[in-house]
Every structure is written in C-alpha cells, then in structure tokens.
C-alpha cells in the first residue's frame, strides 16, 4: 500500500517537473531541428538556426547591451542589497517595517506597471531610451533578491563576532572589512550571479524604456511579434544556458558551505 503510494507520488512529481521543464527542453531540441514548424517525428539535425541567428549584427549588439546592463545592474543591486541586509541585521530603528517593505516590495509589482511608471518617470529625467535607464530599472527589480541572499548569509553569522572584533580594537569599518565582508563573500558572489540573471532575462521594463538600445530578450520579443521563427529557439537556448549557469552558480555559492558548517 505504502509502496504503491510512494510510486504514484514519484510519478506525479516527475510529471510536474516535465511540465515545468518541457518548454526549456523543447526550446533546446527545436533549436537543432531542421523543421520550421517542428512536430513529431523530428526532422534532421542542423545548426543552421544558430548560424543564421548569430550572423545578425543586431544580435551581437543586443548581446553587448545585455551583458553591459547585467554587469552594472548586478554590482549596483548587490551593493544596495548588501547594505540593506546589513542594516536589517545590525540595527533596529523606527519605521523598520516600512524600510523592509520598501526593500522587498518591488518583485510583487506587475512588470507592465513598472514598465509604464519607469518609462514616464525616466522620460521626465531625460533617461528613457538609454541603457542607463534600463540599468536603473533593473537595479530596482534585482535589489530585493540581493538583499534576500545577503540576509540569509548574515543570519548564519554569530552576532557576537562583530562585537568581538570591536573589543579587539577594530573600528566599525575595520570589523566590516575583516569580519563581515569575508563572511558574506559567498553571498556577495552568489548575489552578483543571481541579479545578473534577473537583469539578463527581464524584457518588459526593458522593452518599455529601451528605445533603440535593445537587449537580447527585447530583441526576442520583437522577433516574436512577427512570425514563427526557429531562430528564437537558438537565441533562447543560449539565453537559457546563460541564466541557468548563473543561477546554479549562485545556488552553489550559498548552499555549498552549509554542509560543513
């Protein structure tokens, strides 16, 4: 009885995984498949879609834009996220609840609304249509993730460690540099990876504010608005590979140490 139940449960879990990961797997499979409208049985193996997609100069431009935006966003978001996590860890103050709400609220806001609000506000500042505009918006969206990762790491730290450093004569800045930052290093690297992935995949806000400076996902969106084009699978597979690598790296950084602690 128990065995049968376990088996059913396992099958259910696998089915759910198949549903969640089917589009990712399908995208990779179709990217190497010769049919324009893929079906079963599959057509022949080809790398043609990759060759076509990557021979477009605008794709390389978009990749350069995406990498730049993701890199700057990850540094900014990680700094702000770390600072916020440390503030929450170290200090109690009035309105702390509101402060934390501000820190964690952005991901709950629909991206379409963020896109419109950012477009309107950045236009007022003369920043819409620039890469700086996208960086600003992505930093807003990515900071909560950075804050969560750093806070998770800080919660594993012995709270007396910092005080011990002060007692041994370190100043506040010294304790930060020699105790807190080294302890948080894995979380900081992890946060850099994860926030880069957030920025690399975000397309709605980027689409609203980008103007002519397109990032990779914005370019995919614009191809999508035309016809079915298997080049998207080729570009998409590269995008998947990039963000999945970043996320897995992020996970390895924060969860690796735990086993030994």
């Amino acid at each position: 009885m128990r065995r049968a139940g376990d088996l059913l449960g396992a099958i259910y879990l696998v089915a759910l995984f198949v549903f969640v990961f089917a589009p990712i797997a399908a995208s990779v499979v179709f990217s190497f498949n010769s049919d324009r409208f893929p079906t079963l049985p599959l057509g022949s193996f080809t790398t043609d879609w990759y060759a076509r997609a990557f021979s477009r100069p605008e794709l390389w431009e978009a990749i350069a834009n995406s990498l730049l935006v993701a890199a700057v966003t990850s540094v900014l978001a990680t700094f702000i996220g770390f600072a916020t996590a440390y503030t929450d860890f170290r200090y109690g103050f009035r309105f702390k609840q509101a402060y934390l709400a501000l820190a964690l609220l952005p991901p709950t806001m629909p991206l379409v609304i963020m896109g419109l609000a950012m477009l309107a506000w950045l236009s007022q500042l003369g920043l819409s249509g620039t890469l700086r505009g996208i960086i600003i918006a992505h930093t807003v969206l990515a900071t909560p993730f950075a804050m969560a990762i750093c806070r998770l790491r800080l919660s594993q730290m012995d709270t007396t460690l910092e005080a011990a450093a002060w007692n041994l004569g370190a100043g506040q800045w010294g304790a930060m540099r020699h105790v807190i930052l080294p302890f948080c290093a894995p979380a900081i690297v992890s946060s850099l990876c994860l926030t880069a992935a957030v920025s690399f995949d975000e397309f709605i806000v980027a689409w609203f504010v980008s103007g002519l400076n397109r990032t990779v996902p914005v370019m995919i969106l614009e191809i999508l608005q035309g016809n079915v084009d298997p080049q998207i699978n080729a570009i998409g597979s590269v995008v998947f590979l990039t963000s999945m690598t970043l996320v897995v790296l992020a996970q390895l950084m924060i969860f690796r140490r735990r086993r030994h602690d």
């Binding site: 990712i24 995949d201 699978n233 998409g236």
Partner: peptide, 16 residues
C-alpha cells in the same frame, strides 16, 4: 532555476 529563466522563450516553446 526556471523562475530565473526567460519566460518569454518558454512561452514561445509552448507556442511550438
């Protein structure tokens, strides 16, 4: 992991 991968490309894959 899928939470942080392009939803746009996943939707396109479903289209196919």
């Amino acid at each position: 992991v899928p939470f942080f991968t392009s939803f746009l490309v996943r939707a396109y894959a479903w289209q196919v």
